[in-house]
């Protein structure tokens, strides 16, 4: 059974439909990357799958269960979201933030969150106030918070955009490890096409509120597709170290250096 099934989802904010019929599946243990131009509906998709935004029509099922039939708590136990950023109005510490992820796991709320924080290397930052942390540190704390929910489906909305290349790789390696050891399924919105190419089992391209196409990175990431999806000129080359593509932007006007 597929972990996540999105079936003809139509929805958005109020009367304005951002999603106009999105259909795709994610199998258990898969790492699916979601790419697409700005405003295509990727973040909206995450919000809809996590149950924050209602669907106008269509259906979303996790483990075969319609998420609309679940309570907020049940949803949080199955689906965890890592957002791009978070504004916190009060001086909560990093550990407090991660502990909030345990809310859906009541009454085991009081358990230590050390493990989750060690996975992303933020345990030593636990006493620091969240708003004093750097962008990258904050993102890792948010990832720990999501992990603390112990959900089997992880939705990531550009989780590594603020991280340096070392940290980026670290996070993706962590995702790999979670998939293999814990069987966690990951659906991530990524702007970095190369990271998506390297780590994702499959890539879904979303454009204008619908799925433009999906498949293995080798299939999806080619110059024609990227032109149609993003309207950008690219050069797609095979990587030297593994059977995955690498995407290079093309300079507009002027010759390319050979």
């Amino acid at each position: 059974m597929a972990k996540l099934v999105v079936d003809a989802a139509v929805g958005g904010y109020g009367k304005h439909d951002v999603l106009r019929g999105v259909t795709f599946r994610v199998a258990a243990g898969e790492f699916v990357g979601c790419i697409g131009p700005n405003g295509a509906g990727k973040s909206t998709l995450i919000k809809t799958v996590s149950g924050v935004l209602p669907l106008r029509s269509g259906c979303i099922r996790v483990d075969g269960v319609d998420i609309a039939s679940l309570t907020y708590q049940e949803r949080a136990r199955r689906i965890a979201v890592v957002s791009q950023s978070l504004s916190v109005g009060f001086a909560y510490r990093a550990e407090d933030i991660v502990r909030m992820g345990r809310y859906c796991r009541r009454p085991q709320e009081r358990q230590s969150v050390q493990t989750f924080m060690e996975w992303t290397g933020v345990w030593e930052l636990r006493e620091r106030k969240f708003y004093t942390l750097s962008g990258g540190e904050r993102q890792r704390v948010l990832i720990s918070q999501a992990l603390a929910q112990e959900a089997e489906l992880l939705l990531l909305d550009e989780p590594v955009s603020d991280l340096d290349i070392f940290r980026q790789v670290e996070v993706f390696e962590l995702m790999e490890w979670l998939r293999q050891k814990k069987g966690i399924t990951v659906l991530a919105i990524l702007h970095d096409l190369n990271l998506a190419a390297l780590y994702c089992d499959r890539i879904i391209a979303v454009k204008n509120g619908t799925v433009y196409g999906s498949g293995h990175p080798n299939q999806v990431l080619n110059e024609d597709n990227l032109r149609r999806i993003f309207g950008a000129e690219t050069v797609v080359l095979p990587r030297g170290d593994c059977d995955r593509p690498v995407v290079l932007p093309k300079k507009k006007g002027g010759k390319q250096d050979e």
Partner: peptide, 17 residues
Amino acid sequence: DILALGETKAQQLGVDV
């Protein structure tokens, strides 16, 4: 505590906001 993170995040953490 969770409400401090905003309504969207609170919902995602399991709070019926």
